[in-house]
Computed example of a mutant assay.
Amino acid sequence: MVDRLDGKVALITGGASGIGLAIAKKFVDEGAQVALADINADTGEKIAAQIGDNAMFVTLDVTQEDQWEAAFKAVIARFGKVNVVVNNAGIAIGNNIEDIPLEQWNKVVAINGTGMMLGTKHGIRNIKNYGGGSIINMDSIEGFIGESFNLAYDFTKGGVRIMSKSAALYCAEKKYDIRVNTIHPGYIHTPMVDVTPDLVKLEEAKTPLGHLGDPNDIAYMAVFLASDESKFATGSEFVVDGGYIAQ
């Protein structure tokens, strides 16, 4: 049986934990070579070593363009090419329109917005040299809906959704054979949520299926979008939320 990602090389941001790590492991299971890109070098190096020869680690602050350029050079030097970029790194700092400090706003926009743009930009510039591929931008259900306490996060996730469509159309016009899509997770059970049990209960109650998602629920969708199975999907949104935005 042929693995679904045989011959693919992927760079995954936020790859040292949570959803990013789940995606990296699933990609390797399906035959890919992966670069875990993260700002947390100590953890990232250890995890890449645990995964084995088909994984490497690159230090990456997604807000810094020179670090993106260095990351792609390192991945290509090790694995010979890049076919897939998963822009997964992001932060959520809750605040409302009246009270949000400008410094907090700028931090969220820099990581979730500018970082996503830079990953898409440099993903396109590199993937086009190796026969095309897939860019997967990790969005959120809040790319569709708003929450009163999540102003900056909502702003960035709405922006990423539309930015990805623009990039998808650009690649199509240029005949680059690069697909750009977004994944929109609902409430997912990652290590971060365990520190707030009351929040877990609230999120479970708000999800029609009655439980939080697992990081692998998102990883399986990413495998599909990274594979040739999704060759006719671009500029599209893939929602994995237990029915949340169907309400």
Rank of each mutant, 00 (worst) to 15 (best):
3 D>M: 14
4 R>T: 10
10 A>F: 09
11 L>G: 13
19 I>Y: 10
20 G>N: 07
26 K>Y: 09
33 Q>T: 15
33 Q>I: 06
41 A>F: 01
42 D>Q: 15
43 T>N: 15
49 A>L: 14
50 Q>A: 10
54 N>A: 10
54 N>L: 03
55 A>E: 11
56 M>L: 14
57 F>A: 04
64 Q>I: 15
65 E>W: 00
76 I>P: 04
77 A>P: 12
89 A>C: 13
95 N>F: 01
98 E>A: 10
99 D>A: 13
100 I>S: 14
104 Q>A: 07
112 N>E: 09
114 T>Y: 00
117 M>H: 14
121 K>G: 12
124 I>S: 03
128 K>S: 12
132 G>C: 01
132 G>P: 00
133 G>S: 05
134 S>R: 02
138 M>Y: 11
140 S>D: 11
140 S>C: 09
153 Y>P: 15
155 F>G: 08
158 G>Q: 04
159 G>V: 02
161 R>Y: 12
162 I>G: 05
162 I>F: 12
167 A>H: 00
171 C>K: 14
171 C>Y: 10
172 A>Q: 11
172 A>W: 06
172 A>Y: 08
177 D>E: 14
179 R>Y: 00
181 N>P: 09
182 T>L: 04
187 Y>N: 08
189 H>N: 07
194 D>Q: 14
197 P>F: 00
199 L>G: 01
203 E>G: 05
211 H>Q: 09
218 I>K: 08
219 A>S: 10
223 V>A: 14
223 V>P: 06
224 F>C: 13
225 L>P: 04
228 D>P: 08
228 D>F: 04
235 G>P: 05
238 F>W: 00
242 G>C: 07
244 Y>L: 09
